[in-house]
Design a protein around this nucleic acid. Structure first.
Length: 286
DNA sequence: AAATCCACCAACCGCATTCCC
DNA sequence: TGGGAATGCGGTTGGTGGATT
């Protein structure tokens, strides 16, 4: 309050970044490291505010960023984590180290929200009341996996996968990032991927959507990147068992699909390779 | 072929939190 | 320790390009 936004200053440029600006920014960060953003515009001569520089770096220029199609496993992770954490995109992004919070947020808003909504609508229209016991597998699971595989197939033709967007400039951005990869690995502070997972557990505890998750979510599963996928599946199993026996599936109107479907989908053999692929990703938690 | 619609996503805005003097 | 500045984060907007009419 009272303080003018940093980007309102006279002479501050807005709009898309040019390759030239990117190169300037990347060279500067390569030399001085990420951080101290306020000094970036003055030291580089970029007509951008510090905020804009930071955003450009964290969302697009930072090495190791994966662009384009989200894998089914990534989708599953996002759905899972969104159900658990809410719209904490930065927190969710910390589990998908190659994706930025902005990317995940966009993907959620443009794809996943629609998918889940459609799924919910279909559920409603087919009046598929959840069976009260563990037997509830066939209809829901079938429909859910159908829904997702269908959409994932369609995605193959989408803008994302074809990536005509990732045109010449996008690939030049990739190249800039690649230039930095080696340097970044040795960097002690890979900007921002330092979400406090204790706090997240805390958050999850508050969010009683998933008490079982918290109970079974020993700290180690979060800290040990290699275990993330497995633990989520494990936790999901527990959750689905709990749901099944206690019938905690009531508020489907507002909640995402029960974890059971996600579980099946995550466990689906078609996704097996991608799970492994994800588990091999470098975890940048420090 | 032109006009319109729609989906996507990069970038901005503003509030909250953290840092530093 | 209080206040201002810097940084982080989530919501929203606007430009662009493809699809449809």
């Amino acid at each position: 309050m009272g303080r003018p936004p940093c980007c309102d200053k006279i002479g501050i440029k807005k709009g898309p970044w040019t390759p030239e600006e990117d190169i300037i920014l990347v060279s500067y960060i390569q030399e001085h490291g990420a951080g101290n953003w306020r000094s970036v515009p003055t030291n580089t001569g970029l007509m951008r505010c510090s905020k804009s520089c930071r955003l450009r770096w964290t969302n697009y220029l930072r090495p190791g960023i994966k662009r384009g199609n989200f894998t089914p496993h990534e989708e599953g992770m996002i759905i899972h984590l969104q159900a658990l954490l809410g719209n904490k995109w930065a927190a969710i992004a910390s589990y998908l180290p190659q994706r930025t919070d902005n990317d995940i947020k966009n993907y959620w808003n443009t794809h996943l929200k629609k998918k889940l909504k459609k799924f919910q609508t279909d559920l409603d229209s087919h009046n598929l009341a959840p069976p009260p016991d563990n037997s509830r597998t066939t209809n829901y699971d079938h429909q859910f996996s159908w829904q997702f595989s269908d959409n994932n197939n369609k995605q193959g033709n989408s803008k994302l996968s074809n990536s005509p967007n990732s045109s010449l400039y996008a690939s030049s951005t990739e190249n800039i990032s690649r230039l930095l990869e080696g340097w970044m690995r040795s960097s002690p502070n890979p900007s921002r991927r330092n979400v406090d997972h204790d706090e997240m557990l805390h958050e999850a505890q508050k969010n009683n959507q998933d008490q079982e998750f918290v109970k079974s979510g020993e700290k180690s599963w979060i800290q040990d990147g290699e275990n993330i996928g497995n633990n989520i599946v494990t936790i999901t199993k527990e959750k689905s068992t709990t749901c099944g026996s206690s019938g905690v599936v009531a508020d489907q109107k507002t909640s995402p699909p029960p974890f059971t479907y996600l579980e099946k989908w995550l466990l689906d053999e078609n996704n097996g390779g991608q799970v492994e692929e994800l588990m091999e990703l470098p975890m940048i938690f420090t």
